[in-house]
Amino acid sequence: MNIRRFLSSSITIAEMEARKIRHDSTELWTRIIQPALWLLVFGETLNTIRAMPSGNFSYIQFITPGILAQSVLFISIFYGITVVWEKDVGIFTKLLSTPSPRSSIVLGKSLAAGIRGVFQAIMIFALALIIGVKIRFDPLDIAGVFVVVILFAMCFSSFSMFLASYLKTRDRMMGIGQALTMPLFFASNAIYPIAVMPIWLQYISIANPLSYVVDAIRSMLLSGAYGNLLVDILVLLVATVIFLTLASTTIKKLLE
C-alpha cells in the first residue's frame, strides 16, 4: 500500500464530512445542549451542596473535563450509525468501489469524528467561560486537550465502525450505542473521583479508556500536574491504533 495515497484518501474522506457539516451544521449545534445541561443543572447543583470530594477544585471545575469527554464519547460511539446509513443509501458501496484502500475510509471517518470533537471542545470552553468555570487557558494545554480529544474521537468512532461491520443495522447500532455510553460514563472518573467508587467499580474504571481521557484533560485544564499524562496518552494511543486496525479489516463485512 502506497502511504501517500493512503493519507491523501483519508484526508479526502474527512474533507467530505467537513463539507457536509458546512452545508448543514444543525446537528453540530444541537450537540451542545446535553453537555450544557450537565454543567448548568447537575454541576451547579452539586457545586452548591458540596456533596462530592473534588479535591482542590470546585465540583463544577471537576466535572467540566468529564462532561467534555462524555460529549465526545457520544459523538464517536454513534459514528457507526453514520456508516450504516451511508451503506443503506449506497454511498458506502461507492466508497468501497474506488481504488482507495479501505483502511483510509476508516481513518478518514475517524478523523472527521476528531473534527467534530474539536468543535465540541471549543463550545464547552466557551460555555465554561460564560458561566465562569475557572480553567487554565494556557495555549499549550488547550492544544494538548485538542490532541487528546481527537485521539479519543478516533478511538471510539473506529470502535463503533468495528461494531457496525457486524451489527449492520441502524437500530442495533442505536441500541448498542445506548447500552455502552452510560456504563462507560458512570464507570469512569468523569463525574466523581475514582477513590469514592466501590472497589469492583474502581477496577472497571481502570480498564475504561474514558478514565484516561478525563485524567489527561483534567491535568491540562485544571491542575497542571502532568505526572500521569504520558501514561494516559499512551493508553489512548494504543487503544486507538487497535480499534483503527480492527475496523479497517472488518469494515467490508458491512456490505455482506
Binding site: T12, E15, M16, K20, V89, G90, I91, L95, S100
Partner: peptide, 18 residues
C-alpha cells in the same frame, strides 16, 4: 449512489480525489 448531502461539484471532486 451519489452523495445527496453534497453538491454535484463536490461529488465529482471527492470521488475524483479518491
Amino acid at each position: 449512489s451519489v452523495d445527496t448531502d453534497l453538491t454535484a461539484y463536490e461529488n465529482l471532486l471527492i470521488f475524483s480525489k479518491l
